[in-house]
Design a protein around this nucleic acid. Sequence first.
DNA 1: TTACTTACTTAATGTTTATTAAGCAAGGGG
DNA 2: CCCCTTGCTTAATAAACATTAAGTAAGTAA
Lengths: 216, 216
Amino acid sequence: MSETTPAPDTRAPAGSEAPTPRKRVNRREQILRTAADVFAAQGFNNTSLADIAAMLGITPAGVLHHFGSKTDLLTAVLELRDDTDPAPEGSRMLDHLVTTAERNATRPGTTQLYAVLSAESATDQHPAQEWFRDRYTVLRREIGDAVLDRLAPEHRAAASTPGPDGHTPAGAAAAAVIAVMDGLQVQWLLDPDAVDMASVTGLVIDALVARLSQEG
Amino acid sequence: MSETTPAPDTRAPAGSEAPTPRKRVNRREQILRTAADVFAAQGFNNTSLADIAAMLGITPAGVLHHFGSKTDLLTAVLELRDDTDPAPEGSRMLDHLVTTAERNATRPGTTQLYAVLSAESATDQHPAQEWFRDRYTVLRREIGDAVLDRLAPEHRAAASTPGPDGHTPAGAAAAAVIAVMDGLQVQWLLDPDAVDMASVTGLVIDALVARLSQEG
DNA sequence: TTACTTACTTAATGTTTATTAAGCAAGGGG
DNA sequence: CCCCTTGCTTAATAAACATTAAGTAAGTAA
């Protein structure tokens, strides 16, 4: 018995690091944040419940007590809003994106989670496909609006007019901005010194805005 | 003896679909291309040897007979050059990238494989990390050169001068172009009607080239 | 005290998985 | 006819995994 149960009630020392139980916050949320970290670092398929449980100092079944299944846990993680940065509306959103990229280079967090999981979700049978499809749809609209907001008024009509492919220039620019942020994150994760996420993001935004301010 | 061998020589009907054995090409290459397709569709972690074997109408051990391990198979897949499109040098490479994006929207292939696997490789412990790190390093240099080639001669000096972050504008643009292609692929896989990969790629390239043709 | 809730644990189950070992079959060359 | 290579097979193994069931322990409320 003693060999399998090293510490019957102490909540900390089982795994390698437990994020300070403090005042008993919602245990659920604690697990959620830990799971988010692990999913961000390892992806969904490559993460086992045992991995997450180990970081919390509990067993896999302990995790499933709070969330019925691994998929449910993923869903809850995606639903978890990171309230530390409320996305602003209008043209300031574009600056917010650069700031986000900046912050992410020092403290990888939510965006890394999304970059890793969104690419993974593009594969067959992934449980987060619909979630990411919807997310991108919303983001493209919001960022598209933000791009329009930054254009001089006389250029907005052209940027809102669908081209031969059925998409507006503003929408295309929005897709590009999102894509560049996701793609940069991958390059940065593989080689942090090789790219400066914030400056490249800013460059692309500026270049696109300038481009939409001309006749095509 | 006859009880152990249900079908002594027929090679086809075991799985659900075998891609026409034809004239016996290198079996190795046949397996390689099948594996590439499955990896592109499902990712590496989410693909089992049984998946690949089933598409070939053989057993998992049959696959491992040609490649010692699943990781070796992945390595071989990445090393496999798709000779159908030789990447041109110089400024024409940028047009080539748009063409590639165009072709990929109709027949997902190599690029999808790379988009899916590169994001996956950014997670911990992935066997393809070094491969993708090197690939991105080479690509950034090549595309950076191509960007310079397209600039008017009087702008090349500025675009080759490192900024405060230690990277050249041309290098930043190259990272952006790669990132946008990878990121767009993900959006497109999730929602093919929502983005036009080729036109957005072209838009970003044009916008970046125009931007580097100004004083910053 | 009783009862209920929260937060787990142990144990078991059944599946999936990569990998190894050994053998079989066919075809070609000698 | 024998041998070697190519291309598999069956069988076995050992591990990892998600999930379920049932039980335990502590705290809280009545």
